[in-house]
Computed example of a mutant assay.
Amino acid sequence: MLTRFHAPLNSRLVLSKHCDFCFQSKRLNQVCCDSCSALLLTPNQHRCETCYLPLAEPGICGECQGNIPFYDQVICLSDYQWPIEPVIKAYKYAKQQHLAKPLGQLIWQHIQLTQATLPDVFCPVPLHWFKQWQRGFNQSEVLCKQLAKHAAKPMQKPFTRKHYGSSQAGLTRRQRQKALAASFSCQDTFSYKHWVIIDDVVTTGSTANVLARQLKDAGAERVDIWAIARTPKPSQRR
């Protein structure tokens, strides 16, 4: 289970009776095999109702209470650590785009279990055109198309990333906010009131917060974030 992410699978030669993550046998009506499903799905624990970080009991974390974000709710499939981390890296950096389909199916199952309110429209976190050209695709956009299809909702791309910068990984929340302040532009007005932004990983929430603020400035009333994984704080990592 979860052992062969390095294989070149974009040809879609994997049969539907095999798990897309580890290639072991699975039932035809399953997204993936039982072993991968047990590993990839979010553990049964309390989460902040706003930012999705783990909590000791139900509620909203102190950080979100003291500094209310512009987004309304984050929902993720799992924490950004083993075993989901190598899956995301394979999808994002090894160009294994076929993984968007099973990941989208798992996120959709998780959304249904949480009984989250469906949005009017979906949108992906944008990449700068040069980074997208280098990578060959926008991993958030490919995943967004999958989830919009599951929800039978439209997908829009209201954002443009204006600046090509270095990776935000490793920066503090304050550093990210400063770097992102002028990085995105957004269409002026929208008729849709409830948006869901699709991302691969929510790290500090700074990108999500910037985009949510721009959507609300343009007329949105509610903005949620759905992602594959949420990066835990260092003290919360297992």
Rank of each mutant, 00 (worst) to 15 (best):
72 D>V: 04
69 P>F: 06
60 I>A: 03
115 Q>R: 15
119 P>W: 10
73 Q>K: 13
113 L>T: 15
105 Q>R: 13
158 P>I: 08
131 K>R: 15
182 A>G: 09
183 S>A: 14
131 K>W: 04
138 N>R: 09
70 F>K: 05
123 C>M: 13
96 Q>I: 01
146 Q>P: 00
56 A>R: 07
103 L>I: 02
124 P>A: 00
93 Y>C: 01
183 S>H: 05
88 I>T: 05
184 F>S: 10
174 R>V: 11
161 R>A: 05
114 T>S: 15
164 Y>C: 15
132 Q>S: 05
162 K>R: 14
101 K>N: 09
72 D>K: 08
65 Q>V: 10
109 Q>M: 14
161 R>W: 03
114 T>C: 07
118 L>N: 10
131 K>T: 08
97 Q>A: 04
131 K>S: 10
140 S>Y: 08
77 L>H: 01
182 A>L: 08
73 Q>R: 11
99 L>A: 04
81 Q>A: 08
109 Q>P: 07
79 D>T: 06
109 Q>E: 14
57 E>I: 04
141 E>W: 13
153 K>N: 12
136 G>T: 00
101 K>M: 12
125 V>H: 01
104 G>T: 09
103 L>E: 11
60 I>N: 07
56 A>E: 13
133 W>G: 09
80 Y>N: 04
171 L>I: 00
139 Q>W: 06
64 C>N: 11
139 Q>Y: 06
56 A>Y: 08
131 K>M: 04
166 S>N: 08
107 I>N: 00
93 Y>G: 02
139 Q>S: 06
80 Y>T: 00
102 P>V: 11
154 P>G: 03
177 Q>H: 05
136 G>K: 00
124 P>S: 14
84 I>V: 11
83 P>L: 10
87 V>N: 03
57 E>A: 02
138 N>T: 01
167 S>H: 04
140 S>H: 05
161 R>L: 04
76 C>P: 03
108 W>E: 06
160 T>W: 08
